[in-house]
Design a protein around this nucleic acid. Structure first.
Lengths: 240, 240
DNA sequence: CATGAATTTTGATATATATCAAATCGGTGT
DNA sequence: ACACCGATTTGATATATATCAAAATTCATG
């Protein structure tokens, strides 16, 4: 029953889902990789604006973003909507739903995107057999906690300028981790959405972009941004 | 090798660590309960102000608070410290460290407290054998994510009054869940700490308490608080 | 290419909270 | 009971961001 796989097959298997978060750091045998790969065979495409899931939907699967990007948001009782995160290819989405069996936010495609579905029961079953997968799943969930606490700190004690610097540096890092330019990229989200995420109004975002540009830290034109002075931005994040 | 346990023993086992979060909802056999119980045999006491762990410490265990309460905080580069959470008896603390192998914040006893240590490797090993424990661990981590995202929403889009109302209602619920009065309890934390947690200054906290009192929603005297109008507070949380 | 809608930028003003300062209160030890 | 020290409350003012409004730019559509 032991299947043998070539290194090439293995690479394909591993990249099958583009599971940067789930796959890469796991030291699994070839066979184990294949098992994991079987998990996430089912793929789905989404166009800009499509919902991956909605708040209240029954939770069954995590989703690994293969390509494209998503945003997550919640609707307040009064109708206002608040963005809780931006997710890029290679990230896992839906972790918040595990505790309640229902999704707690909406996930919406920001552009044409592909995801693969990871049925959570199967993921749990497999992770009982594969300790390194189990550990990895724990790390992913913990990382989400750390990320969220980072945002809490940002919202609790930083001013507009620092928040935006933190946001841009975070995007920059994530692009860099994907082998893309950390200094020149497209913002997939509107000023409105950035503001909602950072706890600021769109006008403040616009003003703060202008400010950073005047200081020569960035060059921005609508959705195209170039970071001109990375260290300057970091200084700005550190604040006064 | 199968040990038999009476219902009474089982209750003792389960309550051994006062693991509201870890134990109660898990449907384990008697023997499994005993295994879990073995995990958390080591107990430690802390006095007010003692550190349970510090930011940067090597991560090895989660901690279950048996009695008392803790706060977690991070130190910014510039020396300011920000409270990231208040933890009560029955809660699990340390989840953020799993992803980095190092603790990412300080945990400090707010009063005389007892914790039991849960070596994470052992917890993982056991949870590979006990699916319901595995599922439960996942739920606990997910719940932490949901909690943090709740704070994000609060910090991002609520005013002082709403934040404080949310804070008080949250405490109230947690006391209620422990069979204590949801309307009359002691605040273990200072105005400073509440402010730090809610992204406000201590003066604002004090003023807002006064405001809520003037409106007849609460009665507060230093650290003793009584909620007089629960619905009023909820309305206040919902905001304008 | 022209038109209109949506997004972004910029300006003027309002407002919530921070900051600075002082007074009051509560607890602790002598 | 008294004096002291930290925590809390309250007041006056400053400031960052929100809000309201209008202009400028970009984008979508026929």
């Amino acid at each position: 029953m032991q299947r043998t796989v070539s290194f090439n097959q293995l690479k394909i298997a591993c990249s099958n889902c583009n599971l940067r978060e789930l796959c890469l750091p796991v030291d699994l045998s070839n066979d184990e990789i294949l098992q994991l790969n079987d998990l996430c065979h089912q793929k789905r495409r989404f166009a800009h604006g499509d919902y991956l899931y909605r708040s209240g939907d029954k939770f069954q699967s995590l989703f690994a973003i293969r390509s494209g990007s998503f945003k997550t948001q919640v609707l307040h009782e009064d109708g206002r909507e608040q963005v809780t995160g931006f997710q890029m290819a290679g990230e896992i989405i839906g972790l918040d739903a595990i505790s309640t069996d229902r999704h707690t936010c909406d996930a919406i495609a920001h552009e044409s995107s592909e995801v693969c579905e990871l049925p959570f029961n199967k993921l749990e079953t497999l992770s009982r057999k594969l300790p390194s997968l189990q550990r990895h799943l724990h790390r992913i969930m913990s990382r989400e906690i750390v990320r969220d606490q980072g945002i809490m700190l940002l919202l609790g004690s930083m001013r507009a300028e620092q928040r935006l610097a933190a946001f841009l540096l975070n995007l920059s890092q994530r692009y860099a981790a994907r082998g893309l330019s950390p200094t020149r990229f497209q913002l997939r989200m509107s000023r409105q959405e950035i503001g909602s995420y950072l706890g600021l109004k769109l006008e403040t975002i616009s003003r703060t972009f202008s400010l950073l540009q005047q200081r020569g830290l960035i060059h921005i034109h609508i959705k195209s941004i170039e970071i001109l002075d990375m260290e300057g931005l970091q200084t700005c994040l550190a604040g006064s």
